[in-house]
């Protein structure tokens, strides 16, 4: 009976993580790691293993709906994955050096500061009410970055174009590097790269980020699998909860207004920024 309660509690945590992860484009890890370590007392490396699996579950669960409904942009996602996967490989190879030389805490501080600095442009975009438009550049046509989706919240089709592909690609390279180096999900940088860098609509951004994070996490999972940090009984309820939550979250995103989605991301950006800063300073 006790184990069933434990199982159901983990399942509910996964369900919540799936909804938040799918709507924000950050994946389920943001909720899973603190929930498992703080509430359930699971050791950090096993929580991180479960979180990696949770990220893949959020990605596939949410993206199956986003891709079908043309909300996530496959071309934008795939062209940016070139940099995230290369960055993740470089990060994984450099990680041992970073940890033996004690550089990792500086990187956590730097990452936290960068995220907190991004609060201002993200908030400015929230205040502006309208998406800023730019002139199409060479990358818009060369990489076929235009698209359209039907916005259920606004009740109309939204046409959009992506700009400054090189800037998005550069941010994605850093996102991949950070995830490989520090072993954390980098959905937050993916959202920044597409929202701030390429000026895509926020719902296209978060859904395309969901589409992408599964590939980055799959690239990182081989190392975790080899290390054996995946506990079947802890991971199983989290995965079941996340798959159900991510599906519900993907339906909720479609009906949620763009400003509310940006507000959710803004909130999570602040929380993750502070969390990374504290981890770097050795407080948490």
């Amino acid at each position: 009976m006790l184990f069933i309660l434990y199982f159901v509690a983990l399942l509910l945590a996964g369900f919540l993580a799936g909804i938040v992860g799918a709507m924000s484009g950050l994946g389920g890890g943001v909720v899973v790691i603190p929930a498992l370590t703080l509430l359930f007392g699971v050791p950090l490396e096993y929580a991180a293993g479960a979180s990696l699996i949770a990220t893949i579950a959020t990605s596939s669960g949410a993206a199956s709906a986003y891709v079908k409904d043309r909300l996530a942009n496959i071309k934008i996602g795939m062209s940016l994955e070139v940099a995230t996967t290369l960055g993740a490989i470089a990060g994984a190879l450099l990680a041992a050096y970073i940890y033996t030389h004690g550089i990792s805490s500086y990187l956590f501080v730097l990452f936290g500061v960068i995220l907190l600095l991004m609060l201002y442009p993200t908030f400015a975009a929230y205040e502006r009410h309208r998406r800023s438009r730019m002139h199409k550049d060479w990358s818009t046509s060369f990489f076929q970055l235009s698209g359209s989706y039907y916005d259920e919240a606004e009740g109309k089709a939204i046409r959009y174009s992506g700009y400054r592909w090189w800037l998005g690609e550069a941010v994605m390279g850093v996102a991949g590097l950070v995830s490989g180096l520090l072993g954390i999900g980098s959905g937050v940088l993916k959202v920044i790269g597409m929202d701030w860098g390429m000026k895509l609509p926020i719902k296209v951004t978060t859904s395309t980020s969901d589409f992408m994070i599964g590939v980055t996490a799959a690239a990182g999972s081989a190392v975790y699998w080899a290390l054996g940090y995946i506990q079947p009984f802890v991971t199983a309820p989290v995965v079941i909860g996340i798959l159900l939550g991510a599906y519900l979250g993907s339906k909720m995103l479609q009906r949620t207004g763009s400003r509310s989605v940006r507000l959710l991301f803004l909130l999570l950006l602040g929380i993750i920024g502070i969390e990374m800063l504290l981890r770097g300073l050795g407080v948490a």
Binding site: Y6, P43, Y46, G228, P232
Partner: peptide
Amino acid sequence: IANGHVVVGQSM
């Protein structure tokens, strides 16, 4: 198996 402090790991 259900031990949160991990007795059973996937490496087994």
